[in-house]
Design a protein around this nucleic acid. Structure first.
Length: 502
RNA sequence: GGUCCUAUGGUCAAGCGGUCAAGACACCGCCCUUUCACGGCGGUAACCCGGGUUCGAUUCCCGGUAGGAUCACCA
């Protein structure tokens, strides 16, 4: 039997990582076995519908590379793929009526007040169990109510006795007392089906073989089973996924802020890294490898290795993983992502026509220099917004304390730095080739002649040209990027500062 | 509160009766090195508790405890 899974989001906003993980696993389960994966939009709640949410779903799927065989914009044989359109086609009402005929469902005319009177609050939580009040309404009364246009709802008729058992592929057999099961609403008073009902009807009609979803649905699954039984349908395989939680071990919700795919992208994470990280939340491969492309995930994803316990979403590990992706990113691709943040460091809108960027100190950094900065950053960031803070000293020489010239391990202090800087300044002034290699040769030669440790010269130099305790790259790299004039200017500034401090 | 689920280091997570209890992130050292980062090497750190079953339990069973989920005309 060919596996068919579906991702069935409701367009209510951004896609949080729990939903993304569900979509991903549904996709992987199908693709791993050459099955089919379809997209169905569950928009049965008109009130929660958010404008643009549909686009977010399409965009997210596109960015992550999760492609579907059938969907609203790519219909197959069991359309429509949007539930509101299926409502218009009368599909759900037709099936609800079938259930009424079989005595598996019934009209309910209870108003809000009566329903509210059934509510109780337990441990701060409101719970409600319907009392089957309308189950045995006389036929005439039902007809009369219907004829009078009285608002109604259709409820499932679940027995109060016995138990319902189903087998989840991850969690095993789960049994629930039928008395625990509520007579849930199938068709709402606005004529729309509830999620529960539409889900069962559509999954059956669309030939879904594996229902994959978060385990918050685990306890309501027996209700679904009853529905399948009421229809006389074969239930699908159920695969419930462990929850993804925040640091406080609570289910991730849209409210917890920075937890949607889009938020993460805005924070500078790469879609591939997000997918990779999320795939490891609740599943593990056979070996020790952790970096997987979507293609590799398809190859390796055996859903029987999905585990049962909830997983905390760890931003630190996501950051690390993103860094791994940045490091191996193709340079041009990397540049696309990194450039905006480089420009941000220089408070610039865009590079000049020749690719150069001008610092706020008025120094023109050539296109080559900009490229060198990009190269320097590639192994030093985890996410792109890390960039500006690391290279701000190129833009402006920061105010710094001369205490920075003292470094025990480098065997240098203010006095030594002053001497060294004064001594090397003329050497640098007469030198014109500020390329890395040339500078390296020149300065190493100077060091050799003086017979001192590298750090004695290099530390003061780097401090002077950067004004920072630590920098990406060293004195040579920085001077190459800054160029002769600015390098000398900064060194002279350093000398002045040291002079004053003495 | 009822019901359901879960329980290995701070986090992710191997393990599926006999292991010195993998690996990754984070953290801490060391090496490389002009600082930072990368890279390399090493380290700290875990089987929730109590009963069984068994020659032997992290692993199987039961109970407890803890955490979570769920109990809508939301999905």
């Amino acid at each position: 039997m060919k596996i068919r899974t579906r991702y069935a989001p409701s367009p209510t906003g951004r896609m949080h990582v729990g939903n993304l993980r569900t979509a991903l696993y549904e996709y992987l389960i199908a693709r791993h076995e050459n099955g089919e994966f379809i997209l169905r939009i569950e928009d049965t709640d008109q009130e929660r519908f958010v404008e643009g949410a549909l686009e977010i779903i399409y965009n997210t799927l596109a960015k992550t590379g999760i492609d579907y065989d059938e969907g609203p914009d790519n219909p197959g044989d069991c359309g429509p793929y949007v539930q509101s359109e299926r409502v218009a086609a009368g599909i759900y009402m037709e099936y609800a009526l079938k259930l009424i005929e079989k005595g598996e469902a019934y009209y309910c005319f209870c108003d809000k007040e009566r329903l509210d009177s059934l509510r109780t609050t337990v441990a701060g939580k409101e719970i409600m169990v319907y009392d089957k009040h309308c189950l045995n309404l006389p036929k005439e009364e039902i007809e009369a109510n219907l004829a009078a246009g009285k608002p109604f709802v259709i409820r499932q008729n679940t027995p109060n006795e016995g138990t319902t058992t189903f087998v989840d592929d991850i969690y095993g057999a789960i049994t629930v007392e039928n008395s625990e099961l509520d007579d849930m609403v199938l068709i709402k008073s606005d004529g729309y089906p509830t999620y529960n009902f539409a889900n069962v009807v559509d999954d059956h009609l669309m030939g879904i073989t594996h229902v994959v979803r978060g385990n918050e649905y685990l306890s309501s699954t027996p209700k679904y089973i009853r529905l399948y039984e009421a229809f006389g349908w074969e239930p699908p395989v159920f695969v419930h996924l462990p929850l993804i939680t925040d640091e406080e071990h609570h289910k991730l919700s849209k409210r917890s802020g920075h937890s949607s795919f889009e938020d993460l992208v805005e924070q500078g994470f790469l879609p591939d890294a997000i997918v990779n990280y999320v795939s490891l939340l609740g599943w593990s491969p056979e070996g020790n490898e952790e970096i997987f492309s979507l293609k590799q995930l398809i190859e390796n994803f055996d859903y029987r290795r999905v585990n049962k316990s909830p997983a905390v979403f760890d931003m630190a590990k996501l950051r690390w993983m993103n860094g791994e992706y940045v490091k191996v990113q193709d340079f041009e691709e990397y540049k696309k992502y990194a450039m905006p943040y480089i420009l941000k460091a220089f408070n610039a809108e865009a590079p000049a026509e020749d690719g150069s960027v001008t610092t706020e100190d008025g120094v023109v950094l050539s296109a080559e220099s900009v490229k060198k900065i990009l190269e320097l950053m590639k192994t030093r960031i985890e996410i792109f917004p890390d960039i500006p803070e690391k290279i701000d000293f190129f833009n402006r020489l920061p105010e710094y304390d001369t205490a920075m010239y003292t470094h025990k391990k480098m065997k240098t202090d203010s006095a030594i730095s002053y001497e060294i800087l004064k001594e090397i300044l003329p050497v640098l002034e007469t030198h014109n080739d500020y390329s890395l290699d040339s500078l390296h040769e020149l300065i190493m030669d100077f060091i050799a002649k003086k017979g001192v440790k590298n750090g004695v010269v290099l530390w003061p130099l780097r401090t002077a040209v950067s004004g920072k305790q630590n920098t990406p790259g060293g004195a040579f790299e920085i001077m190459e990027i800054l160029g002769k004039d600015e390098s000398l200017r900064r060194i002279r500034t350093g000398i002045e500062m040291l002079e004053k401090a003495m």
